[in-house]
Amino acid sequence: MPGFDPRPPETYWGLFRRESRITAARRGLDIAVSDPSRAPDGLSLDWTIDFEGERTRYSLLRWDDIVGARFPRSNWRRLRDVPALWWRLWRVGYVRRFRQEARRFATVILGVHAIFLAFVLLSLGLATGLMLLMPEASRPWSLLAIPILAYALLGATMVLTRGKPLYVAHLVDDTTFTYDHASGAEMRMHARLDAFAERIRAAEATASEIVLIGHSSSSFLGIEALDRVLALDPRFGRRGRPVSLVTIGSVIPWIALDPRADWVRGALARVAAADAIGWLDVRADWDWLSIHLRDPLSASGVRSPGPDRPAVIRVRIQDLIEPELLAARRWNLFQMHFQLLMSSRDPNAFDYIAFVAGPEPVHAMIARNRMPGPAERPAVPVPEAVPG
């Protein structure tokens, strides 16, 4: 399950095929990735991986159309929705807890909104200056034109910069989608998750192992999908067919700390308590677009069943890419965020292709990494939602 990304699903297949060739060359392996095919119902893009005689069927959930309906949004909608959103979040104390649990990620999210505000003020200042240069005889009409000109300048600024260096438009729109999904104002994803839950449930009859991987925003969407499966079939995962959840570049507390997201926290608690389903959290301390200070349950105000829920793998960036590449990519936050979905230069390090299609079952890897960690801080209580 990919994150908030408007690109067509074939982009992910292309990335997977390219990285599989790199993994095969680095490790001396025989890996073949089939051509992709779109499911008849349009729910997924599917392909197979043959890895040293083992075959894996890979299904990528499609929700690029839902993202495309939310990004890019008009600047008018951003100007209308963003201030109201952050006023609500500040009023309920969310911002403080968010910064406490997700220091780097909160810095990025709050930072891109500050940059967008700077673009707005810059556009307004330039428009005001230009109108003041107009002949005095043209006033007050020239002054009344300031908002129109400022809006045009803001649009031009966003197009010319493409939101760089931090992809401002993308992250601003991703933020509003996340909180709209939390509050129920955005409902389009629910039907998609219902359908995918049915697909996951049906796979239990044919697959030797089921692994649900949620990257970025799909770390919490994957939780919601599994919660739907368990609601349909409480015995799912208890019939001898191993089932695992893998979260990569997780941002679960981003949504779960919102007081309006009580149903998200409920899903999180239920999936965490489903001991028949393994859970592995792949963390990268160098990834500014993920939340990795502590386990996502405690960070979300949900009591953790134990220190190994989820099991954890921490990946060093030095094991994935060469130092010269790291120097070039370090501040390309999006590319760094996707690095965990790529090949690793160290044959003994975490490698996404080998992880997904290699001979070791994912549930066995989770069992190996269920080691009690250091004592966690108490769960942060999430206050009741308030009107507005």
Rank of each mutant, 00 (worst) to 15 (best):
G68R: 15
G301F: 08
Y12N: 05
R96G: 00
A156I: 14
A169F: 00
E384N: 08
P9E: 10
L122C: 09
A106F: 06
R91C: 03
D295I: 07
R57S: 12
P378V: 12
A327N: 06
A127S: 14
V229R: 02
G306A: 07
R17H: 07
R309I: 04
M187P: 05
D46V: 12
R17Y: 02
S298P: 08
E224V: 01
P361W: 03
R309Q: 07
P361C: 01
D30P: 02
D174M: 12
L193S: 06
S34N: 12
R188Q: 13
R283E: 10
D180A: 15
P381G: 12
R294E: 13
S218C: 05
A202N: 14
H363C: 09
V251M: 08
R228G: 00
D346S: 10
V264R: 04
N75L: 14
I252D: 04
L122Q: 10
S20T: 07
P307H: 08
A328R: 15
P165Q: 12
R27M: 05
I200C: 07
F236A: 05
T128D: 06
G184R: 11
R377M: 14
A32R: 15
A32N: 10
D180Q: 13
Y94S: 04
I223V: 15
W331E: 10
G125C: 11
S74H: 09
E376L: 13
R314C: 00
E324F: 08
P140L: 08
P347R: 02
S74R: 11
T176E: 12
P83Y: 02
V159P: 00
M1W: 09
L326K: 10
S34C: 13
V246N: 05
V282F: 02
L149I: 15
P359H: 14
E224M: 09
I109V: 11
D308L: 04
I255E: 10
I213E: 01
S344Y: 04
D35P: 03
Y12I: 08
L341C: 01
V315S: 00
T23S: 13
P72V: 04
R21M: 07
L289N: 01
R62S: 14
A137S: 12
V356M: 01
W13H: 15
A207E: 11
R316Y: 00
S34W: 11
A118T: 14
R77K: 14
I313P: 00
R91N: 06
D5P: 00
W87V: 10
I353F: 04
P347Q: 04
R38M: 11
D180F: 12
R192L: 10
L333N: 01
E322C: 01
A261H: 09
V172I: 08
L126I: 15
S216M: 01
I353L: 12
F4H: 04
D46M: 07
M134D: 03
I148D: 11
I353D: 01
L166K: 09
G163E: 04
V282N: 01
L221H: 12
W331Y: 13
I223F: 05
R38K: 13
F105Q: 05
P296S: 08
S244Q: 08
W47V: 02
P165Y: 13
V172K: 01
Y12H: 09
R78I: 03
S74F: 06
I313K: 02
P135E: 04
A375C: 07
P372M: 13
I321F: 00
M336K: 00
I213M: 03
F105Y: 14
P310H: 06
A364K: 09
I148N: 06
E322S: 10
A231W: 00
